[in-house]
């Protein structure tokens, strides 16, 4: 699977090694114990979570407030009765006149929803306006989100059966599906337009997304890569191991969703993951808040992006795609020692 990912994020390899060493060290010499710590009480801040996509439908923005750190098992304090709108601007940042009002769902507190026919457009900027809230220092919050261009980036995918995969899945995506050595690999056939591009990949099985959360998306970018890897034909993107919870069988429909996101949202997701995962004691820096795009010290993000999907039926008779001039079946390559 994630060969692409490793190459794209070589640093993660370094980090992974560091983590392993730290855990080794801790394993060898230390103990853990729950302790009582009195934490400072935090000022309430607005939490914004939502966005606008390209498919016509209901788009939701969820408003809540922060709680004291040890108070997370209480009810989530959603914010009601806010006045929420989204305004569209063109590339020159002129209002296009499209304005969507988001109304609170009467059955779901704090969930503000558009009409069911609303959609965002590539290259436009969407401004979220929230007013009539009484949280924190402000009563009015805004957030701007640029809707990145998304070309016809997915042509198709292929789900192929792999056996005896020696190394798999240390880094990301469906981490816990990668324990075994046999499974389905989803190959991507796509284009990666010129310039810096940032992507989210989500894997589907029989129409159900397997990793559609901030912490489990597969994140890729093309900034570190010299060659255009995403544009490679048949690059394996996701591996669904046969011995994992997500194990698929012949005849299942497997697929990928690709989302082209802004650089800022990509950064946000990375920071979110760092904060969510907790920092490593020996290597992490001072913890810091995830920087969102909402004004007035609010937490969270308002995003705008489009997506494409492609599916394939799992079929064991299919051969993995050969790319880059290699051949099948491969000879056993001699072990190569990396020169010092």
């Amino acid at each position: 699977m994630m060969i692409k990912q490793i190459i794209g994020n070589r640093k993660q390899g370094i980090r992974f090694s560091i983590y392993l060493f730290t855990y080794l060290l801790i394993f060898l010499s230390s103990c853990t114990e729950e302790i009582d710590i009195r934490l400072k009480s935090s000022d309430k801040r607005l939490v914004v979570d939502g966005g606008i996509g390209m498919e016509p439908g209901v788009h939701t923005v969820i408003l809540s407030t922060t709680v004291d750190y040890f108070a997370t098992n209480a009810e989530i304090p959603y914010v009601s009765d806010a006045y929420v709108t989204i305004t569209e601007f063109n590339e020159a940042m002129q209002a296009t006149g499209r304005l969507f009002r988001l109304l609170e769902n009467p059955t779901k507190k704090g969930h503000y929803e558009t009409e069911p026919d609303v959609f965002g457009k590539q290259g436009h900027t969407y401004r979220l306006n929230i007013s009539n809230v009484n949280v924190g220092k402000e009563t009015h919050y805004t957030a701007d989100a640029f809707f990145p261009y998304i070309a016809e980036q997915i042509d198709s995918v292929r789900a192929v059966w792999w056996t005896n995969l020696l190394w798999a899945g240390i880094l990301g995506g469906l981490q816990d599906t990668a324990r075994g050595r046999n499974g389905w690999n989803i190959e991507l056939f796509a284009d990666d337009p010129e310039g810096e591009n940032y992507y989210i990949f989500i894997t589907y099985k029989n129409g159900i997304p397997l990793n559609d959360t901030l912490t489990r998306f597969l994140l890729l970018d093309n900034t570190l890569i010299d060659q255009n890897m995403i544009g490679l034909r048949g690059i394996p993107i996701e591996f669904i191991s046969d011995s994992s919870w997500a194990a698929a069988k012949e005849g299942d429909t497997l697929g990928l969703e690709i989302r082209a996101i802004s650089k800022d949202y990509y950064r946000y997701i990375n920071e979110f993951r760092t904060v969510y995962g907790g920092s490593n004691p020996m290597f992490g820096g001072a913890p810091a808040n995830v920087r969102g795009n909402v004004s007035g010290g609010a937490i969270g993000y308002f995003w705008a992006h489009g997506n494409r999907k492609a599916f394939d039926v799992a079929d064991r008779s299919k051969r993995p795609t050969v790319f880059g001039g290699g051949f099948w079946p491969p000879p056993n390559p001699p072990k190569q020692i990396i020169p010092r």
Binding site: S41, S64, G300
Partner: peptide, 15 residues
């Protein structure tokens, strides 16, 4: 140390 927590994307994250 965290002082608060925010519920985002189905997860609690420290603030």
């Amino acid at each position: 140390f965290p002082s608060g927590a925010a519920f985002l994307g189905g997860n609690w994250i420290p603030v």
